[in-house]
Amino acid sequence: VTVHVNRYTYHFDNPEEAEKFAREMAKRLNMTVEIHGNTLKVE
């Protein structure tokens, strides 16, 4: 599972951890999480 935050890319083996990380980053940056299959984008 890949998480994109701005120009950074993070890889996770565990989808739940990836989503938790993405949501935490989105909250911190006041952004939203978009899910595209195995890719989560924080925008």
Results as ranks from 00 to 15, higher is better:
1 V>R: 03
42 V>K: 02
33 V>S: 02
9 T>M: 10
13 D>V: 09
5 V>W: 07
4 H>I: 15
13 D>I: 09
31 M>S: 10
13 D>Q: 10
38 N>V: 05
29 L>Q: 05
26 A>F: 02
36 H>Q: 11
15 P>N: 09
35 I>Q: 09
11 H>C: 09
38 N>W: 03
40 L>P: 03
1 V>G: 03
5 V>I: 13
1 V>E: 01
25 M>I: 15
30 N>G: 14
16 E>W: 12
43 E>R: 13
26 A>S: 04
43 E>S: 14
16 E>N: 08
41 K>P: 03
41 K>L: 14
31 M>I: 05
27 K>Y: 11
16 E>D: 12
42 V>S: 04
26 A>I: 02
7 R>H: 14
17 E>F: 05
31 M>L: 11
16 E>I: 12
18 A>S: 01
38 N>Y: 04
6 N>R: 05
25 M>P: 00
34 E>M: 14
17 E>R: 06
30 N>R: 02
11 H>M: 08
9 T>I: 14
22 A>N: 00
24 E>A: 10
28 R>T: 08
19 E>G: 05
27 K>C: 08
12 F>Q: 00
3 V>E: 01
25 M>A: 08
6 N>C: 06
12 F>M: 01
6 N>Q: 11
33 V>E: 01
10 Y>I: 05
36 H>M: 12
32 T>I: 15
3 V>C: 02
16 E>G: 08
13 D>M: 09
19 E>R: 08
23 R>H: 13
34 E>G: 07
11 H>G: 02
21 F>K: 00
18 A>D: 00
9 T>P: 05
35 I>P: 03
26 A>R: 03
4 H>V: 15
11 H>T: 07
36 H>I: 13
24 E>S: 06
4 H>L: 13
6 N>F: 14
7 R>P: 06
9 T>Y: 09
41 K>I: 15
26 A>T: 02
23 R>G: 04
35 I>K: 13
4 H>T: 13
29 L>P: 07
14 N>R: 07
25 M>N: 03
7 R>W: 10
34 E>T: 15
31 M>W: 05
29 L>M: 06
2 T>A: 07
37 G>A: 05
23 R>K: 10
15 P>Y: 15
5 V>S: 03
23 R>S: 09
6 N>D: 12
23 R>D: 08
39 T>A: 09
36 H>K: 11
39 T>H: 12
42 V>P: 04
16 E>A: 12
11 H>P: 02
43 E>F: 15
6 N>V: 07
39 T>E: 10
30 N>I: 02
16 E>T: 10
7 R>M: 12
3 V>K: 01
1 V>T: 09
22 A>T: 02
9 T>W: 08
17 E>C: 07
23 R>I: 11
34 E>I: 15
15 P>G: 08
5 V>Y: 08
5 V>R: 02
2 T>L: 10
33 V>Q: 01
37 G>Q: 06
38 N>C: 05
33 V>G: 01
1 V>I: 13
12 F>N: 00
29 L>N: 05
27 K>E: 14
7 R>K: 14
18 A>L: 03
19 E>D: 07
12 F>R: 00
34 E>W: 11
29 L>F: 12
13 D>P: 07
40 L>S: 04
36 H>D: 12
29 L>A: 04
14 N>A: 06
19 E>I: 14
5 V>P: 02
36 H>W: 10
40 L>V: 13
7 R>Y: 10
2 T>W: 14
26 A>W: 02
18 A>T: 00
8 Y>D: 12
23 R>Y: 14
25 M>G: 00
18 A>I: 01
17 E>V: 08
27 K>V: 11
29 L>D: 04
21 F>W: 07
31 M>N: 03
24 E>R: 08
5 V>M: 06
38 N>S: 10
6 N>G: 15
30 N>S: 06
42 V>E: 03
33 V>P: 02
24 E>T: 06
19 E>V: 11
38 N>Q: 07
40 L>T: 03
24 E>Y: 12
40 L>F: 11
38 N>K: 05
28 R>Y: 09
38 N>H: 09
28 R>M: 13
3 V>A: 01
1 V>C: 08
4 H>A: 06
10 Y>P: 00
28 R>H: 09
22 A>Q: 01
43 E>D: 12
42 V>D: 03
12 F>T: 00
38 N>A: 09
2 T>K: 08
18 A>N: 00
27 K>W: 09
17 E>T: 09
39 T>M: 13
33 V>H: 01
8 Y>T: 12
36 H>F: 12
5 V>E: 02
4 H>R: 10
16 E>K: 11
27 K>P: 01
24 E>P: 00
